[in-house]
């Protein structure tokens, strides 16, 4: 199974929406950028039927360098989390279960 990248998505937008490839590329980039800048602002992005991207604050904690065993302070940081919607979970699970069943 080939990896889907920007080029693949642009091709889909071109064939489904009827925009030129260059317009499709611009729009795809804007959608991604809008999601990123919203998250950067600390706001979550909810795509119904797909999932939610959100930013979580992690407090500082003492970690350990697994190689040397040394204790290090892990600074407080923000991490991004994606929570898939039930619909996405179902379609991935059903699609894959069918695919695996076919192979056997």
């Amino acid at each position: 199974m080939q990896t889907l990248t920007r080029a693949g998505l642009i091709e889909k937008l071109y064939s489904h929406v009827g925009l030129s490839r260059s317009e499709s590329a611009v729009l795809l980039e804007e959608v991604l950028e809008k999601i990123v800048s919203t998250l950067e602002g600390g706001d979550a992005v909810k795509i119904s039927g797909f999932g939610t991207f959100s930013v979580r604050k992690k407090g500082s904690r003492i970690g350990r360098n697994p190689k040397t065993g040394e204790e290090v302070v892990i600074e407080p940081r923000l991490v991004l989390a994606f929570r898939p919607s039930q619909m996405l979970k179902n379609s991935v699970n059903e699609g894959m279960t069918k695919k695996v069943a076919k192979k056997d």
């Binding site: 199974m1 080939q2 990896t3 889907l4 990248t5 920007r6 693949g8 998505l9 889909k12 937008l13 489904h16 929406v17 925009l19 499709s24 729009l27 795809l28 959608v31 991604l32 795509i47 039927g49 797909f50 996405l88 379609s91 991935v92 059903e94 699609g95 894959m96 695919k99």
Partner: peptide, 21 residues
């Protein structure tokens, strides 16, 4: 456009594919 983007990611995943952006 927005729906197509997320639908395509979904259908790629449903076939076990990877989506790299």
């Amino acid at each position: 456009i927005v729906s197509t983007i997320f639908d395509e990611i979904e259908s790629s995943l449903a076939q076990g594919g990877r989506v790299e952006l």
